[in-house]
């Protein structure tokens, strides 16, 4: 299944494979969601149906539709929002329930190794739906969708999923195994968006994205700056069906129609441009960040 981004399609041997798990990993802002949206746009453009399991409540229908995804053919599954992102307090601050106690009372906690108890809101009041972790809800939703069949692509967006300590866990081996079996039986391509590898050896492809360049431009001196987009490097960390270690660079733009060719998309000289080498600067300001906290 191709995504339509030529360098990425070439890098991964023509696209991701149906019936297998593919991981798109990287830091927030590295272009993971844009790449997953390209796959979803490709699949819905062919008339197939896709599902997007939104673990952290970050799904933005407007920009997803602008990326070419036919929303009429996309199932958006909203799961309990990440308390650390949504502004809600962690569970142990709410009721004193500790993760260990949740593990003891809930049999579904084997889905995640480092889990938290997600808060659910019903009629404006928080409660704990069986003290089930959000990751468990995500996996349960994925299983149901894969068992139901008829989906060409299932995107599991764990990109913003973190526990109360800010650490994003991984799926347990048994959970990843069940997910892999579900993908194989349904024939759907499963794409997992995460900060790091979630499915371990059960993923057929792990694609690591990292931001190379952030481009802002202004039409002339004194004109307001505009955010153009990112240049992203994709590196194959693991590929069961091809070679690993290869890398390719591609662009994700706020308005691709402005770029005539991929080479001219973020080429210097098109406009007065200033680039932010934030990856270098982030190291310089790491100490400051800690100090600010």
């Amino acid at each position: 299944m191709r995504c339509g981004i030529t360098p990425v399609d070439k890098l991964i041997g023509g696209g991701i494979v149906r019936g297998r798990i593919s991981e798109i990993i990287g830091h927030p802002g590295a272009g993971r969601t844009s790449l997953a949206a390209a796959f979803a746009a490709s699949i819905t453009g062919r008339g197939e149906v896709a599902a997007w399991i939104d673990a952290a409540g970050n799904f933005d229908p407007e920009s997803i539709a602008a990326a070419g995804v036919d929303l009429a053919r996309l199932l958006w599954v909203a799961t309990p929002a990440n308390p650390s992102r949504s502004g809600a307090r962690p569970v142990d601050n709410f009721a004193g329930a500790r993760p260990e106690s949740a593990r003891a009372t809930d049999h579904s906690d084997h889905y995640v190794t480092n889990h938290y108890v997600a808060d659910h809101y019903v009629e404006g009041r928080p409660y704990y739906a069986g003290k089930r972790p959000a990751s468990a809800a995500v996996l349960k939703a994925a299983e149901w969708i894969l068992v139901a069949g008829g989906f060409g692509l299932v995107v599991i967006d764990c990109g913003g999923l973190r526990d109360c300590n800010g650490w994003a866990g991984t799926f347990t081996q048994s959970a990843a195994l069940r997910l892999a079996h579900g993908a194989e039986r349904s024939g759907a391509a499963v794409v997992v968006i995460a900060a790091h590898q979630m499915c371990g050896t059960f993923a057929a492809l792990s694609l690591m994205l990292s931001r190379r360049r952030t481009c802002f431009s202004r039409a002339g001196a004194g004109a307001p700056a505009l955010f153009d987009g990112l240049t992203v490097e994709a590196r194959v960390m693991r590929n069961k069906l091809g070679g690993s270690g290869g890398a390719a660079t591609w662009s994700a733009l706020a308005d691709p129609s402005c770029a005539a060719t991929p080479e001219s998309a973020l080429a210097p000289g098109r406009l007065q441009r200033h680039e932010s080498h934030a990856s270098r600067e982030s190291a310089n300001y790491a100490g400051q960040r800690v100090a600010a906290r």
Partner: peptide
């Protein structure tokens, strides 16, 4: 188009 000439469209996480 999801990707014009191999360029993806930027997506936002809300």
């Amino acid at each position: 188009a999801p990707a014009i000439n191999g360029i993806a469209r930027m997506v936002m996480r809300t």
